[in-house]
Design a protein around this nucleic acid. Sequence first.
DNA 1: ATACGTTTGTATCTTTAGCTACAAACGCAA
DNA 2: TTGCGTTTGTAGCTAAAGATACAAACGTAT
Lengths: 231, 231
Amino acid sequence: MNIFKLLKKNKLFYNFEDKEINKIFDCLNGHINKYSRGRVVAEIGAPVTEIGIILTGAAVKFIQKPNGELENCGELYAGDMFGEVEGYTGDHTYNSSVVVAEESTILYISVDTIVKQCSNTCACHQKLLENVLSCLAERIDNINNDAKYLKIKSMRGKISKLFYDRYLAQGTETIHLGFNRNEMAEYLNVSRPSMSREMIAMREDGIISFRKDEIVIHNVDELARLANSAR
Amino acid sequence: MNIFKLLKKNKLFYNFEDKEINKIFDCLNGHINKYSRGRVVAEIGAPVTEIGIILTGAAVKFIQKPNGELENCGELYAGDMFGEVEGYTGDHTYNSSVVVAEESTILYISVDTIVKQCSNTCACHQKLLENVLSCLAERIDNINNDAKYLKIKSMRGKISKLFYDRYLAQGTETIHLGFNRNEMAEYLNVSRPSMSREMIAMREDGIISFRKDEIVIHNVDELARLANSAR
DNA sequence: ATACGTTTGTATCTTTAGCTACAAACGCAA
DNA sequence: TTGCGTTTGTAGCTAAAGATACAAACGTAT
């Protein structure tokens, strides 16, 4: 797969032309490295000078618990990046380590040069800057939204909000989760059997029906009421 | 209070000199408005072209639930701002309304000009840009951290993590919360009596003692264990 | 010192979700 | 079609936290 297509999958390069992407290598100290499985490409506490963007392969992120233990806290695939938050916070050091999970290529661009103006009057700086900003701002939106589910205490409330949000986003009474029960339970931070139990109760109440990851909403008003009054 | 001192309380102007702040009004279309109680200064769905920074007074943020109802979702005081997230996300419209709660003055600076380079070679753009970035990145850190408390299921786990985090931050075995029980319970998203019950159980177990918002940690190791193993 | 409002502690009861272990249904490949 | 692994549904029990309502302690102003 060619590098331009790959990079365009990354939000940092939204709206970029091929030739603008090329300029990255001149203006932003862009460079590409290749790693094999097990290689540590970011280490907790180390200074962040570059944003890393996975071009091919995959990597795993680990945070360190105060007792020293490492905990898996997410996976990175082609188009994903790391360091874009830490690069601009407090002490500019990684707060998670990134370990390559399979043979991977990673593009790095310099954190500093993104905000610095360069002598070549290129549009790419400007665009990249806007994209970095949207990227961070969007992330805030997303996390905030996820936190909403966590704050709801009742099982029915959590489920209702999830389904209702999907209904609003997809616009149809038949929605697809892209989750199996396990994943959905994990996302909502509840146990799967308890969740199943409540979904079935909601079905008995005529609010929804479902099969696998396809949910049909039979009583939108009630679902909306549940989602909005959830505490 | 003078405007320079006020602005320096805001993270956007971290590291600014007085004369650099003055440039804001030239380069960034900075302007100040005065409002009385009840005035709506941001409306859900309206385009965001400026970041608003409260100089004096106070305001309240409301989100709109899908049924149309408004819900208080936070207060803004001197030094706080609004629009800095929405200004750089998706459709660049407010997702919460801001209503002035008491006579207030608000400084606005243009969202666009922050990322644009200006002809005057001034350092203020550059600095402001870095500050906007840190601001957003820091926010991500903070929300992520808050979400951690919400994900912990056991009462003891939540309490332990909160106290242990404070212990790590303050570095002393006597920590001050800056919370009363009600506020703490709200922050942890639990009921106050249940929380009280568990705090007392932890005291009986010799882990902590407390009086008002002063907590003394007697068994740091155990607290750490609880905080780190919390599920 | 007293009286009042606020914060914190206590008791009782109920509700809810967690957990475990198992059964049924499904999907897919041999 | 049969069999196997995975996903989903079910049951019973337990533990834990919610709700409510009240009591005690504290702070503070008169």
